[in-house]
Nucleic acid binder design. Structure first.
Lengths: 226, 226
DNA sequence: GCAAAAATATGATATAAATCATATTTTATG
DNA sequence: CATAAAATATGATTTATATCATATTTTTGC
């Protein structure tokens, strides 16, 4: 699985937030990996061996509840760090990460990453900020699940995806997901998600074309959320 | 509201995680505050002026959805840091904090706190770890809201409170909350919460005495969650 | 290029939990 | 201590959404 030097020591979260003179150390320690579509990068319950930086492709971060049910917590894209959810007190990944397309990433073992944190206070600070933002987001989601109906949550989901991934020339959101994955991200079932997005389509608020979704009336989606 | 030197430079999150030679600087900058039961320490939407460290009393951290609905995200106790949810990119508190009893706390202005982070890498690292743990917790709650029924969530709520606050000699959980607050923490309505905890009482899994709750059969609560 | 698997589509039904309504008890407060 | 306000208690009703069932279309792998 190892591959050549795909890392340019510039683009990833780690390289962006390190002291210049630390880069050679990264150069020595990094391991580039290629993961095929549908394969797991790590799995919930695995001991945390390290941290991954995503160069290319998309990754879903998800977790199972029981045997059947699952929830998607995050979609990662180029430049993102993956596996930081495992950096809490107990060093076990609380989530799985699965490649949505062919993915190229850089693996940094946990020992070297911890050293990097010690050497680069800016890295630690930036990571702290990332967590702070993610926590804020997660807690907003908690409230949305408690207090908004599914349609509003679907609206929120679409707005978030547009914000995170942007849209192409034709206005379609720049990420391709199955309806089941969208449902698992919105925190509902496939059937209900389908019904809600169909409603939104009939109301001309969104436009669907296969797996592609375009937001036609952003204001109306925002109004649904309140 | 200012008061004498209640801080012993030892017990709070900040003092615990700072270099010894930084303590005199804290001494100079800290401001002790007393907040009466029911009063707000800060409110969602307020610009982040600083961080609070709790010496005495209990605090609920909560947020409104719409005008009516609310959600409790966290209960803080002695030794805890409050206000760190405001340290993300946009410097506005995403939550409110309200004293549950008379509360004594220590206020550190944001500028000095940021400097403290720069001077004390260990502080930044520990705070990062705190966020990592909180994020993990928050994301588990998201899944619980999506995939567990209310009774299981009530069970989880009680177990969490016991874990965080412990129990007294008679076995009652060491925190006194209204049923409405418990419901807002479990992510349900007062009525439903009441029904669920009444069921648990009838099943002899918990014991209720006014506002006090004792867990009689922890294993059964855990089984409810799966 | 074909078979199997996965994803999409949609109707019917069940049900958990919110909402509404109201009475009682406890706690705060001037 | 009295009166208002908050919290508790519980039944009845509604509703949103999960679940079940099944048919069709699309994608994937050999």
């Amino acid at each position: 699985m190892k591959k050549g030097n795909l890392c340019n020591l510039k683009s990833c979260f780690l390289c962006r937030n390190c002291l210049k003179h630390w880069l050679p150390a990264i150069e020595v320690h990094k391991q580039n990996l290629v993961i095929k579509k549908g394969q797991k990068i790590f799995e919930e319950g695995d001991p945390v061996k390290g941290i991954y930086f995503l160069f290319k492709g998309r990754v879903k971060v998800h977790r199972k509840w029981g045997d059947e049910k699952q929830l998607i917590l995050h979609f990662a894209q180029e430049g993102d760090i993956i596996g930081y959810r495992g950096l809490g007190s107990n060093k076990v990944y609380p989530v799985s990460a699965t490649a949505l397309d062919e993915v190229i990433l850089c693996f940094i073992d946990i020992a070297f990453f911890e050293t990097s944190l010690q050497v680069n206070p800016r890295l630690t600070y930036t990571l702290m900020q990332l967590y702070a933002n993610e926590l804020q987001l997660a807690e907003r989601r908690i409230g949305n699940l408690v207090h908004l109906d599914v349609k509003a949550r679907v609206a929120e989901t679409l707005l978030m995806l547009k914000k995170d991934f942007g849209q192409n020339q034709e206005g379609y959101i720049n990420i391709t997901l199955t309806k089941q994955d969208l449902a698992s991200y919105a925190g509902t079932t496939y059937e209900t998600f389908f019904r809600m997005i169909t409603e939104l389509e009939q109301e001309k608020i969104v436009l669907l074309s296969g797996k592609d979704i375009a937001i036609l009336k952003e204001a109306k989606l925002e109004k649904l959320i309140e």
